[in-house]
Amino acid sequence: MDEKTERELHDRTLNTITHGRLLAQEWHTAGLVPRGSTKQLTLDLLQKLTDRCGLQDIDDDRIELLGEQIRRFTNEYREGLGDRAMATDIETEHIYDTKVIDLINLAWRWRQFRAAQRALEDKVAAIRQTDRLLAGI
């Protein structure tokens, strides 16, 4: 692998790890408590993100599980807010409820983490596919 590709892969990995760690921190700041049958799975995932490890174990299903919980908690706090926050950026300049701001920020962070994770996985897949193609020449 050339140096430029290594740097790009490193940057994408760093971006994913950073957003994951901040997602776990902001989850706790927002005071969300996982419930139901996925409680332990969620807590384990948040701990992996906090510890900056296990990226290979974090698939789209687990990321979507976190997102769904954020959406649901936020909708319970203020009807429809979770749906909006998960879909688009919401300006918080004129919002004075700190809990609402924390939940909006958490949804934004989740979207950033999901995008970073997907970009990293796409880059790794491209590298693998390129290696296979070049090996066949």
Rank of each mutant, 00 (worst) to 15 (best):
R84A: 15
A87T: 10
D102E: 15
I104C: 06
L103H: 09
A24K: 00
A85F: 04
M86H: 03
R132H: 04
D131F: 02
F113D: 01
R72F: 08
L66S: 09
Q56S: 12
H28R: 13
G82A: 06
A115F: 00
L49I: 14
L32Q: 05
F113N: 01
H19A: 13
D61H: 07
G136M: 13
T13I: 04
R128D: 02
G20R: 02
Q129P: 14
H10S: 12
C53A: 09
Q129S: 14
L133W: 05
I104S: 01
Q56E: 08
Q129H: 07
V100F: 03
A116H: 06
K4T: 06
E26A: 12
K123H: 04
H94A: 14
R7I: 14
G36R: 15
A87Y: 09
K4Y: 04
P34Q: 12
D89R: 15
K39L: 11
V124W: 00
R114M: 10
Q56K: 15
G20N: 10
K99P: 00
N75M: 08
E3M: 10
E68N: 15
D51M: 08
M1P: 03
I90A: 06
L9F: 03
T92L: 06
L41A: 08
L9R: 05
I104V: 13
E68H: 14
Q129K: 03
I17W: 00
I63C: 12
E3R: 03
Y96I: 01
E121A: 13
L43I: 11
L9S: 08
R21K: 15
A125G: 07
G31W: 01
R12L: 15
H10T: 13
E64W: 02
L46W: 02
R12P: 03
E79I: 12
D122F: 02
L65T: 09
V100G: 01
A115C: 03
R72S: 09
V100M: 12
Q47P: 01
A135G: 10
T38Y: 04
V33E: 13
Q112W: 09
A116E: 03
N15V: 03
T5N: 04
L45Y: 00
R78A: 14
A116Q: 06
Q47W: 05
R71P: 00
A115T: 04
Y96N: 04
T38R: 15
D44N: 15
I104M: 09
K39P: 01
D44C: 10
L120K: 06
T50S: 13
A126Y: 04
D97H: 07
T98D: 15
A119Q: 06
R7V: 09
P34I: 15
Q117Y: 02
R71T: 08
A125T: 08
G82N: 01
L43Q: 14
T92N: 07
A116N: 10
H10L: 10
A125M: 03
